[in-house]
Design a protein around this nucleic acid. Sequence first.
DNA 1: TTGACTAGACCGACTGGTTGGTATACATTC
DNA 2: GAATGTATACCAACCAGTCGGTCTAGTCAA
Lengths: 201, 201
Amino acid sequence: MPTATTRATARDKLLDGARKLMLAKGYPATTVDDICAEAGVSKGSFYHFFGSKEELGIAVLESFARQAARVLRGPYLEVSDPIERARGYLRHVDAVAEGLWRDGCLLGNFAVDLAETHPEIRDRVAGQFERLRSLAADLFRAVAQRARERRPQTAPSAEDLADHHIALIEGSILLARASGDWSHVARGLESFRRYVETLIA
Amino acid sequence: MPTATTRATARDKLLDGARKLMLAKGYPATTVDDICAEAGVSKGSFYHFFGSKEELGIAVLESFARQAARVLRGPYLEVSDPIERARGYLRHVDAVAEGLWRDGCLLGNFAVDLAETHPEIRDRVAGQFERLRSLAADLFRAVAQRARERRPQTAPSAEDLADHHIALIEGSILLARASGDWSHVARGLESFRRYVETLIA
DNA sequence: TTGACTAGACCGACTGGTTGGTATACATTC
DNA sequence: GAATGTATACCAACCAGTCGGTCTAGTCAA
């Protein structure tokens, strides 16, 4: 007796197939026929569930962002000492990075592919990055504060750290894609952790 | 009397137009007809100079990489003290960043768009990043050495620093594109300079 | 219990426009 | 008069999107 959660509906299969293909080849190079074939679903079904390719793109983006937000939560949130909480967060990101970004980051792909051509998607991507940024900035607040006490001249703000963090992740994913060597992502994350340790040491 | 350097030949106009469009919209979303219209040149001329769209893509990539290599050279190369040379390099990058990456980075765009679909272009992109990496690693060697003396536990290698540097630039460009706020690039560069100063302080 | 009815899930052939690329004729220059 | 360069009409393949239709599970009156 398949329940709503165990049975993969055609809609879910389309979403999964689209995510996989758009992660690998990018949005413009992924055709609707590709997605249907990957999902094993007909084109009629596609347009039964989604009004357009762009509408599916938005749905995939939202689903990716939801998953990222879920995975990024962790036990570190309960840690009371703010510096230790930041450390816990960075360890947590290390742990979930492979699962989250093994095939790339949809936010990054969409930012490159669609910024100029699909303003609505671009705005949504920007909004997701903004959310991540304020989340990270809050976590790094105490790190920035301590850095300011230690070395006022070269101390970054919490927002600087958050931007640095996100840009480094996205850039590492890009280099991983270019070189085919996905250890870039883990090394980028590690490098950022070293930076933070240097700041608070 | 137009000379070879002042007269823009059809080939050059195609190269320029393609660079502009591919920087803005990415490779797949840029059509051959678009490029011809942008360059004010007919399709016959296009296929007279380039055997295919991919061949033009490669030519644009090489021209972008050549320009980057030229612009990235600077007076810092003559500085004998290796730490000061690294500092000089970072100042130089700050200065030329706007000119180089105001509209994005072709290496980054191609990495995202073509890694999976055009293996030859991907290999060339990877090669260019590799070149940049070894260049930067050489410049950061002394910084890494001093960091090792100061804080052995959290010191990055010269290669770590080079990867960090490049990934941060590419990631900042990506965030700039997503948000529409191109000050991200300058701030990313500044953040890296602060990191380096922290390491050698 | 059954049979008429309905709504949503799903199908695949089709369309009109666009794509990268070609053929061929014309112009310019040495 | 060749070589080099430019123009335009054209093509087959491919694209997103459409449309008429089938299938199935559920509803409900009799």
